[in-house]
């Protein structure tokens, strides 16, 4: 493959007086596991939303799989999977009904939806409504909904936030498996151990800019610290955000 999974150049987005994204360029290669790190308000989510095609950038452009993500392109949408920060589920529907609904939007069969539900270990929760799922179960369902149409490129926005260590480790295995199947995975997270374990490369962002990009190991060596968390703190400072 000659085209990168994601090529974003010079993205800028202004909300009123705030420059949420200030000249972000990213290059994600096919099959890569890529992490976007940054404190709250760093512009991670807005960057993700522009790249995904949810928002129009004021400046710059984003290519996904060689095609511009804005304006909305339904053929491209069939090839990408997105898990949004909050679990976006239909009210009062059971786990199986949720994933079958999402499957139908992509023309995917119920059988395939049920298989996807099984692959995230939720078959025994198939008849449970969304508001009765635990945090980990809801995250797994939401990831399954993002993967049901077998996308080449997957975006996950803070998939492990609020989970207990067991649920996090299980989810890591799941995410690794997704990547090993050949999919490109882009993830945002607040957990540095997570990024260090999972990601081939990470981009550290703050104040709407990308500060540093590279494999976690190299960043740690480059800055002469012990962990990715130290890299993060030395790049973004220690004061409270938001």
């Amino acid at each position: 493959m000659t085209t990168s999974a994601i090529t974003a150049e010079g993205l800028r987005k202004r909300y009123g007086d705030v420059l949420a994204v200030d000249g972000v360029s990213l290059q994600v290669e096919t099959g890569e596991f890529y992490g976007i790190l940054g404190p709250n308000g760093a512009g991670k989510t807005t960057t993700m939303e522009i790249v995904e095609g949810l928002r129009e950038p004021d400046e710059g452009s984003a290519l996904l799989l060689g095609e511009p993500s804005w304006p909305r392109n339904t053929d491209l949408l069939r090839r990408i999977g997105v898990q949004l920060q909050a679990s976006a589920f239909f009210e009062k529907l059971t786990a199986r009904e949720q994933i079958r609904s999402f499957a139908s939007f992509y023309g995917v069969s119920d059988a395939r939806a049920d298989a996807m539900l099984d692959s995230v270990g939720l078959t025994d929760k198939a008849h449970v409504q969304d508001d009765r799922l635990s945090g980990g179960q809801a995250q797994r369902l939401s990831i399954a909904c993002a993967l049901v149409h077998d996308p080449e490129l997957v975006f996950l926005d803070e998939p492990t936030t609020g989970l207990d260590p067991q649920a996090r480790r299980n989810l890591w295995d799941l995410l690794r498996g997704i990547n090993e199947e050949g999919r490109t995975v882009v993830l945002t997270t607040h957990y540095m151990d997570e990024a260090e374990t999972l990601c081939d490369r990470v981009a550290v962002m703050d104040r709407g800019k990308v500060l540093r990009v590279g494999p976690p190991r190299e960043l740690i060596e480059e800055l002469g610290v012990d962990s990715l968390e130290d890299v993060f703190l030395s790049l973004t400072g220690r004061e409270y955000r938001e």
């Binding site: 995904e52 095609g53 949810l54 909305r72 339904t74 053929d75 949408l77 069939r78 990408i80 997105v82 949004l84 920060q85 909050a86 679990s87 976006a88 589920f89 239909f90 009210e91 999402f102 939007f105 992509y106």
Partner: peptide, 17 residues
């Protein structure tokens, strides 16, 4: 409800008209 739960966003990212 769909706006609050971000379903509107999610549907925007599905190939739905």
């Amino acid at each position: 409800n769909w706006r609050k739960k971000r379903l509107l966003r999610r549907l925007w990212l599905a190939p739905i008209r």
